[in-house]
Every structure is written in C-alpha cells, then in structure tokens.
C-alpha cells in the first residue's frame, strides 16, 4: 500500500475521534445521572472534564491541519479530513450540552427535582447510544448505518414532546413550579439537541463515503412543524 504513513495517521485521527466521542458520551450519561441523584460534586466534575473535551478537540483539529498541510489530501482523503474537522466540532458542542446539564444541576443548589426523572435518562441513553453508533459508522464509513441512525431521532423527539407536555401541566397547576420546570425543560432540550447533532455526524459520514451532501432528515424542522400543528 502506498502512503502507509498517511494511512496510519488517518487511523490515528479516527481513534482520537472515537476517544473524544466516548468522553462526550460519558459526559452526557454522567450529567443526567448526577442530576437524577442531585449529586452536585459529580456535576462539578463533569464541568471540569469539559475542559479536557475542548482540549482534545483542539488537539485533533491541530492534527488534521498538519495532515492537510503536509499530505495535501485529495478526493476521499480530503472529504474525510474536512468532515472530521466538522465532526469534532459537533462533538465538542455535545460536550457543551452535557456541561449545560451539569450547570443546571449546580444552579439548582438545594432545590429538589420537580419530579423523579424517568424520560430524561431515557433520552440521554438513546442519544448516547446514537452517538456511539454514529461514530462507529463514521470509522467504518458504513453508509447504511449512517442513514439509519437519524431515524431514531423520532423517538427522542417523542420523548421530548412528552416531557414538554408534562412540565406544562406542572406549570399550569402551580406557577411556583415555573423555575424548576424550566430547568428540566432545559435539560430535555439539550438532550434533544444532542440527537440532532448525531444526525449531522451521520450526514458527514455519508458525504465522506459517497461525496454527496444529503440532508438525511431535519428533526429540528419536523419538531417545529409539529409545534405549529399542535397550535
């Protein structure tokens, strides 16, 4: 194989992306877990660890820049490196969502949860799983998987809608609940965004493999369309 060095550099980048992905996964699950237990120490740890995620993202970005500058990638290689640049920025933002959840946990202070968490951990689990599998699809350039994963976003959206309605009922019952309901709504919204970003990763994977830009499905659009209908 010609370009052995380049190949192994690319493999290394992919490994790093997987590592970054597992950090983000861990942060998402962990932040929701901490919220569920109202464990502020754990939340603070996740906020601190987000710095590592950012650091890792910049490290990979730098690695990509060096590869682009020194290896002059073309065609597939170019698509891979350019898209990876995009993917790590998506991952970094997912990390920010997890950090956001942890921040809410910290800001809630001594306050109790409005209700026991059931659907929100479910959302986190699904989102983390989608993320995990989307990165596997990215590494293997599995177009079929990349096209299938975004479909699961529906489930996340459904859960989000359910949570939204539940929390609205709490607010209507007692306006004093507004702040606590709002915190949970925020958390759910962050998790919904995570699933959207997974869709972006899948779109990139399809582009890397085929060279075609295809919008797989904008769950965002669908969500707002549904909102419109609900009105």
């Amino acid at each position: 194989m010609i370009r052995k060095t380049f190949e192994s550099d690319i493999q290394q980048v992919k490994d790093e992306v997987l590592a970054l992905g597992s950090m983000v996964e861990h942060a998402i699950i962990g932040s929701v877990e901490a919220l569920k237990k109202r464990d502020i120490k754990a939340a603070e740890k996740i906020i601190a660890e987000d710095k590592d995620i950012n650091k890792k993202r910049f490290a990979i970005e730098n690695q990509l820049m060096v590869l682009i500058a020194t290896q002059q990638p073309m065609a597939h290689d170019l698509r891979l490196l350019a898209s990876t640049m995009e993917i790590i920025s998506e991952l970094e933002r997912m990390g920010d969502y997890a950090k956001g959840i942890a921040n809410i946990n910290v800001r809630m202070g001594e306050e109790k949860l409005l209700k026991p968490l059931i659907d929100i951990p479910r959302m986190a689990e699904i989102g983390a799983s989608m993320l995990h599998r989307s990165l596997t699809a990215f590494v293997q350039e599995d177009v079929a998987a990349a096209n299938a994963i975004p479909m699961e976003d529906d489930e996340v959206d459904a859960l989000y809608n359910q949570i939204y309605r539940e929390l609205m009922i709490f607010i209507i019952e007692d306006p004093k609940n507004i702040e606590r309901a709002n915190w949970l709504l925020w958390v759910a919204h962050n998790l919904e965004r995570v699933a959207d970003r997974v869709t972006n990763i899948c779109e990139r994977t399809v582009f890397i493999a085929t060279g075609e830009f295809s919008e797989i499905k904008s769950s965002d659009d669908e969500f707002w369309e549904k909102q419109k209908k609900n009105k």
Binding site: I2, F6, P73, A75, D77, L78
Partner: peptide
C-alpha cells in the same frame, strides 16, 4: 469534482496518491 469527488475509482486512487 475530480479532486473532491471523482467518479472513477482509478481517478480516486490516483488523486489520493494510492495508485500503483
């Protein structure tokens, strides 16, 4: 197109330096 999304596998191999 040739340098970002070539259609022919041989072109792809050539422009990415994997020819031969």
């Amino acid at each position: 197109n040739i340098f970002t999304r070539p259609k022919d596998k041989r072109t792809e191999d050539y422009v990415t330096g994997r020819f031969g």
